[in-house]
Amino acid sequence: MTVPSYAAPNHGNGESALSLRGLVKSFGGKPAVEGISLEVPAGSFYGLVGPNGAGKTTTLSMATGLLRPDAGTAVILGIDVWREPIAAKRLMGVLPDGVRLFDRLSGEQLITYAGLLHGLDRATVAQRTAELLGAFDLTADARTLVVDYSAGMTKKIALAASLVHAPRLLVLDEPFESVDPVSAANIRSILTDYVRSGGTVIVSSHVMDLVQRMCDHVAVVAKGRILAAGTVDDVRAGSTLEDRFVELVGGHGPTEGLSWLHT
């Protein structure tokens, strides 16, 4: 087992909304996450950035009860996800990346389904569903099957479904992937309002610009380890987040070769 590569500083202001300690996961002997520890302060808008294959999705899956860690713990608002999964899952809304939806339901049915699964009664679900559809600008398509939605609409309906039980923590894996700028702005304003009213959001993304503008905290992940974490201003240390990220991760310099491509 690997020791945590980075000891997360506690940000002080009371309890963490999400606290990951020494998470380890390997797939068939190939390590995907090698000891990730992270404290997400309550009320923060936390960005998790990293190149493809860095272990972001694996980490978030272990934090949300989708993937059993080989070692380490994930605690949500004081409740251990893997010891008391049902209590922990009640507190969080999850948007996993790259999973299917029950897409032969209409948008309205999908949100209703998510609400009822969380044990809400039908009247509450109906009211929240209508409001969510309105907020995400999907009212006109409420009765269209999700399978016929565009990629951006699909992301929005999945996000709406993850909000219906009024979670205190939102774990969103790539919420902006294949979303058009108008919908992205729509999603961003809903998330910002949510954080302002006391909720906590952790998003993974590889759009640095977006994270820099939207989040107040950020952690940089690469090769299954955390390279830096803290407030966005601390991490970027005067430069842009993108430059700092490339510097941390150690990307390629200017591309050589491919001269035959220069027409």
Binding site: T64, G65, L66, P85, I86, A87, A88, K89, R90, M92, V94, P96, G98, V99, R100, L101, F102, D103, Y113, A114, L117, H118, A161, S162, H165
Partner: peptide, 15 residues
């Protein structure tokens, strides 16, 4: 048949 859509049951903490 659910395929990965089953994740909804899992993250919702369905018994």
């Amino acid at each position: 048949y659910d395929s990965t859509a089953f994740s909804l049951h899992l993250v919702a903490g369905v018994r």
